[in-house]
């Protein structure tokens, strides 16, 4: 029995060695992880920026034509992005927009630019969800908070940023992190357009090493670590924002 267990563990170790350490494979995982993180982080920042802009447009008083047009565009954008699969958006962004730009551009565009394209596509995708999350947070802050600020003579902008937004963010933080976490995992389809991310590395090493399960488990652990880090960050931020709660 003991011998068998020993065999089991030593064969796992061998598999791990073959898939992680041999031929410096771990460097490849790192490269994949790097691309996954670049795409996720950029997409997250782009998504947040787009989300904030769309939210501001959508909640601003609709008192001129320009803002109404912007509002319509914003709503259309959210509908289209949420109504189609992200893989499809990636294909369109990569094969339709990027590839045709590349073939017609007078400048040489490097193939590695695919990472930036993916970051942009995921960012645009995430922006739609982020704007809905932010808007939901703002809507759930009691209207009386804005009214109290205005009745003291504070401007809309002032009251919004000092009173409403902090409360909205506190409400929205858990859902926002949920979106970040989903985003990190969703980037795993980037391999479909030839981007070398974690998932793609796993496929490559699986083929090379002929070990079916080990690379899968390795990248599962790596994804998990990234997500756990995000959760840790979320807890820290929530703690900071929890001032004013019923204790």
């Amino acid at each position: 029995m003991g011998l068998k267990m020993g065999n089991f563990f030593s064969s796992i170790w061998t598999d791990f060695y073959d898939c992680f350490i041999k031929y410096d494979y771990y460097m490849m995982y790192l490269k994949g992880l790097r691309n996954t993180i670049i795409i996720s982080l950029l997409a997250c920042i782009i998504g947040l920026l787009i989300g904030i802009v769309i939210t501001c447009v959508r909640i601003a008083p609709k008192n001129n034509v320009l803002i109404r047009i912007a509002d319509t565009i914003g709503r259309l954008y959210v509908t289209i992005i949420r109504g189609t699969p992200v893989v499809l958006q990636l294909f369109i962004g990569y094969f339709v927009v990027f590839v045709s730009l590349k073939s017609t551009s007078v400048f040489a565009i490097k193939d590695t630019a695919g990472v930036w394209v993916a970051a942009l596509v995921f960012g645009i995708n995430s922006g739609a969800y982020m704007s809905e999350i932010l808007r939901g947070g703002i809507m759930s802050v009691d209207k009386g908070q804005m009214e109290a600020g205005r009745s003291l003579g504070l401007s809309w902008t002032h009251t919004f940023f000092r009173i409403v937004l902090p409360q909205a963010l506190k409400i929205a933080i858990p859902t926002m992190f949920n979106e970040f976490i989903t985003l990190v995992k969703e980037t795993s389809v980037a391999g479909y357009v030839g981007i070398i991310d974690l998932m793609k590395i796993q496929k490559y090493i699986t083929t090379q090493s002929a070990k079916l399960y080990m690379p899968l488990i390795i990248i599962a652990v790596i994804y998990l670590i990234v997500v756990l880090f995000l959760q840790f960050l979320q807890k820290r931020i929530e703690k900071k924002l929890s001032a004013g709660d019923n204790k």
Partner: peptide, 21 residues
């Protein structure tokens, strides 16, 4: 905004700013 500085308002539901002491 200038005028409202001179007109105090008290609401049914108090509307104290929840995020401030």
């Amino acid at each position: 905004n200038l005028t409202r500085q001179k007109i105090g308002m008290v609401f049914q539901h108090f509307n104290l700013f929840n995020n401030l002491t």
